[in-house]
C-alpha cells in the first residue's frame, strides 16, 4: 500500500510513483509544475500559440496513458519534453506535406548557401542584456525553417547528440550536421543584422 503524500511538497519521483498507482491529484501537481516548460517547448517548435496549447495538452494525456512505461532513466521533465517534441515533429511533418517548400529550403538543397554567407566577425551577442538577447534569438529563430529551428532546439536546448536528433527527426546524421551548420550560420547572420538595426 503506497504511503499518502503531500502533493505540494513531494518530489517529482514521488508524484510519478503516486500517479503510476492511479493518483490523479499527484498527476495534476506534475502538470502544474511542468506545464509552462512543456508549452514553451511546443511553442518554440510550432511558433503558434493555439497549436502549442493543443499539443501540450495532448502530451499530458499521452503521458498519463504511458506513465507505466516511465522507468526513471531520465527526469520526468525530460521524459515529458520528449513526448511533446515527438508530437510537434509529427504535426510539423503533416503540415509539411500540405505546404510548398520554402525558397530558403530549396536554396539549401541546391547546396552551399551557407558557404556564401560572410563570416560574422564580431560577437553578435556581446554586451546585450540577457532579456534582450533572448528576444533577439527568438526573433531570429522565427525566421528559420522548421527543420533548421528544430535541430537547433534539440541540440542547443535539449542537449541531444547528432545521432539522437537523427533518430527523432528520422533523417541521417549527415543531414542533421548540415542542417545544424546552416541554422547556426543563418542565426549568426540574423543576430548580426539585428545588432546593426539597433545601432543605426
Amino acid at each position: 500500500m503506497p504511503q499518502p503524500i503531500d502533493h505540494k511538497t513531494a518530489l517529482d519521483v514521488q508524484l510519478v510513483a503516486a500517479s503510476q498507482a492511479g493518483d490523479m491529484l499527484a498527476f495534476e501537481e506534475l502538470v502544474a509544475r511542468h506545464r509552462d516548460k512543456i508549452y514553451a517547448r511546443a511553442f518554440s517548435m510550432m511558433r503558434n500559440e493555439e497549436e502549442a496549447i493543443d499539443l501540450a495538452q495532448e502530451a499530458w494525456v499521452k503521458a498519463w496513458q504511458r506513465l507505466k512505461q516511465f522507468q526513471g532513466d531520465s527526469s520526468f521533465a525530460t521524459w515529458m519534453t520528449r513526448i511533446v517534441i515527438n508530437l510537434c515533429l509529427d504535426q510539423l511533418r503533416r503540415q509539411k506535406r500540405t505546404r510548398a517548400e520554402s525558397i530558403e529550403q530549396l536554396d539549401e538543397e541546391l547546396g552551399g548557401v551557407e558557404r556564401q554567407m560572410p563570416v560574422v566577425a564580431t560577437n553578435p551577442s556581446e554586451g546585450l542584456e540577457r532579456s534582450e538577447l533572448r528576444k533577439r534569438i527568438d526573433k531570429a529563430m522565427n525566421q528559420l525553417s522548421y527543420e533548421h529551428r528544430t535541430v537547433l532546439i534539440l541540440h542547443e536546448f535539449e542537449e541531444m547528440e547528432y545521432k539522437q536528433i537523427a533518430k527523432v527527426m528520422n533523417c541521417s546524421i549527415g543531414t542533421v550536421m548540415s542542417r545544424l551548420f546552416y541554422a547556426r550560420r543563418r542565426l549568426a547572420s540574423l543576430l548580426q543584422s539585428l545588432k546593426k538595426e539597433q545601432q543605426s
Binding site: 514553451a40 511553442f43 496549447i53 540577457r130 538577447l133 533572448r134 532546439i153 536546448f157 543576430l191
Partner: peptide, 12 residues
C-alpha cells in the same frame, strides 16, 4: 549565445 537562452514562456 544560445546557452541558457531558451525562450521562457508561460502557458496562457
Amino acid at each position: 549565445a544560445l546557452v541558457g537562452n531558451d525562450a521562457e514562456l508561460a502557458l496562457p
